[in-house]
Amino acid sequence: MADWREALAQSRVLEVLAPLDPHVAGTFPLGLDVEGSDIDVLCHAPDAAGFAQDVWQAFAGCADFAMHQWARGERAVVAAFTLRGVPFEIFGSPLPVVEQVGWQHFDVERRLLDLGGPTFRDAVMQARATGAKTEPAFAQVLDLPGDPYAAMLALSALDDAGLRARIDQASGPAAKLLRVISKMT
């Protein structure tokens, strides 16, 4: 696959969606991409029909194009397609991007990776390599019980000290491996 930044620039997705405050989120900017990862773009789209029309006009000719609207929650319109061999997923939510669950997940994951350092990143990547999606991989490493998406959203309310404490408190197998590796380095 081409470099994700190059694919994003060549796609002109951010230019086309500029009036909708597009933000790139997900595994690529976190450095947690695996085979099959897509470029996630979150947009503030208070007019779902207008968003759908704009995206349709710009990207319906792309390979694998599909669009749907979530039935619950934010009622985001989601478009997926492949452009220049790279899968994209665009979310148009009526909420401003910083209030969207996808952005809150991305932000807390970024903060956790910064606080946990390379060893923490390696543990998350190890979980990703076994097939875990991003939030479940973090939840596995942090030994978070229950729904990993809800658990990660709850962590987004913590400050950095709270997140650091959560990293230090994790007691699952991945967390134990993380501590062993940290002591060795």
Rank of each mutant, 00 (worst) to 15 (best):
T130K: 11
Q169M: 13
L95T: 00
A175Q: 03
R5C: 05
P94N: 01
A7E: 09
F51L: 08
Q126T: 15
G26D: 04
A45P: 02
L112Y: 05
Y149H: 08
L155K: 03
H105A: 06
Q104L: 15
D40I: 11
G116S: 02
M125C: 12
E35H: 12
W56P: 02
L144F: 00
Q10Y: 06
F91Q: 07
L83E: 08
V97K: 03
S171A: 15
D3C: 10
D114K: 08
R128Q: 04
D122A: 15
E109R: 06
V41G: 02
S156E: 04
Q53L: 11
V141C: 04
R166D: 01
Q126I: 04
V108F: 05
L142I: 05
I39N: 07
H23G: 00
I181K: 11
V55C: 10
W56G: 14
M125G: 09
V41L: 13
L163R: 02
A137N: 02
G117R: 09
G73I: 08
M184V: 11
V78K: 13
D122P: 00
P29E: 07
A9I: 08
G131W: 07
V98M: 05
A170T: 07
G73N: 06
P46K: 00
A76Y: 03
E99N: 09
D160S: 03
V108P: 01
Q140N: 03
F65D: 10
F88C: 13
A137C: 02
A58Y: 06
R110Y: 08
L14D: 04
G102H: 09
L178Y: 15
L144Y: 01
L112C: 03
P29F: 05
A137S: 11
G92I: 06
L14T: 13
H68L: 13
A66M: 13
L42R: 10
I90Y: 08
A170N: 01
T119F: 11
E35A: 14
L17I: 09
